[in-house]
Every structure is written in C-alpha cells, then in structure tokens.
Amino acid sequence: MNAVILQNLVKRFGKKNALDNISLELPENCIVGLIGRNGAGKTTLLKTLAGYLRPTEGRVTVLGQQPFDNIRVLSDIVFMDDERYNDSAVLWDLVDQAALSYSRFDKVTALKLLDYFNIPVKSKIKKLSKGMKTLFSLVIALLSRSPLTMLDEPTIGLDAAHRKEFSSLLLKDYTNHPRTIIVSSHLISELEGLMEQAVLIDQGKLIFNKAIEDVQNYALYLSGHRRVLEELEGRHSIIYKESMGEMLVLGVVNSLSEEELRELESSGVEISAMSVQDVCVNLTATNKGGVLDVIAK
C-alpha cells in the first residue's frame, strides 16, 4: 500500500503555481528524500501532506485518506520544521504534549536522548541555541513514531557531529520501527546514505521520483576532447556542459550502451558517475549561466 498518493496536485498562491500538476506515489515503510532548490515547492508539498494547506486542484491521499482537516490522518502524521514551537514553551511541557498527542510516542527514550544531547528539559525553547532547537524537534518527531514522519530541513543548525548522530538515530529508529519518513534537505550528500527513494521537484514541478540506486546511475560525466564529445550531443540527453578550450565536460543521461562507453574510453574520454547532488543540481539549473557570469558582466 502507498503511504502517499498525489494525483495532479496543484497548489496555487495567487497567480503563482507553488505545486504544478504533481502526481506521485510513495510506498509505506520507506525513507524518501525530497530534494529541490530554494523555493522549489518542497515545504508547500510537505504542508499539503500535513493537512496545513488545501490543494487548489488534484487529489492528495495520505494513509488512505485526504489529510486536510482530517484528524484521523493527522494523528498519524508528524511534520517537523523550524517554526514548530512557541518560544515561551517549556520543553518538559512539550514532551508531555507529545505524549498526549501521539499514541506511539516513546517518552522514556525521548527524555534519554534529550539528556544525551545536553538539552535541559526545564528550560524554555527561546533559551536553546538553533542547533538545540533542531535536535529537540527531531527527537519529538522521530520518537512520535508516526506512520508518516516528515522532516523539513532537519539538519539546519546542526554541527557535523550532530548531523552524523542524527543520521544514525534516524536509521536505527527506522530499522526498529519501520514507517514512511520524508526528509527534505539541501544537503543531498548527507541524505544519500539514508534515503531509499528520491523525489526531485523544481519550480513546483516533479522532475523525478526514483529509487536512490536509479538516481546514482542516472547520469555520467564525460570529460575529453571537444571533437569526440560533440558527436554525442544530438544522440543523448545532455544535462551539463562546460567548455575549457578544446576540452569539454558533458553531463549525459546514462543511456549509453556498453559499446559506446568502450569507444569513448578508447578515444581518451574520462568517464565518471554523476553524484546524486550533481544530478539534482544539473536537472534544476536555471540556464542563466553561473553566478560568476553575473559578476563578469
């Protein structure tokens, strides 16, 4: 069964399409990475799934029902972003509230984790550093064990050590309590080890929804003489191109046959896999050149 089904979802704010005709299905018990540039529509998508926003058009089904103003669905959803809690709220009260709200909430482990992260439960939210706030929200979100857990930019403000610990914690808790976890982040390289499925959106449109292995094999970098590589341009889908004199670097969607790859290698072309991060960046490039071009002008 799918945890999330979107059918031709459109969310419009005024005349702007924040989400533009998105259709996708996310399976149960899976970690999904939601990837996109700033303003791509990731948060809008998550807020629509969390029942905050009403779809302008199309249909949203979460855990078998539409989520907007539906407490049966919302009780099984947790959505964590960076504006969660009242600044004057005491952490202890929020832990109590989480225990009241979520039937699966593991309060004992939550308190142990907060203690481990040196987060004082008797202090107010406003007394915490940015990183501590994020850690606190993460602990609440993960320990709620909601069948649909959505984390919007969960590593903002965390230092490298805490980001690593977050990854371990998420994986361990997910292994023990499988559920659908959607993580949206800019730090794709850190998500890569976590996610089983990647959803890329850009300007409100779905670019792809693929298993992470497929994304890892999605494209290749070819680096070699312009004369050799220019021949490929008509035959294959190019998502990146950079010239350096007679040399050319191409990002090519991986539809090349074994024979073609062998030929390229024999012509001195260097072939390397394109990282998930580069795939996402290249697929969502703005065609305006780079930021250095702006300065050069």
Partner: peptide, 13 residues
C-alpha cells in the same frame, strides 16, 4: 499562534 498549535495533531473544529 495557530501555526504553533498545529505542531501537534489538531483539526479546525
């Protein structure tokens, strides 16, 4: 304030 209340499951009614 209403946004903060939606941190935990709640419907509009």
């Amino acid at each position: 304030e209403l946004l903060k209340k939606f941190s935990f499951p709640v419907d509009r009614n």
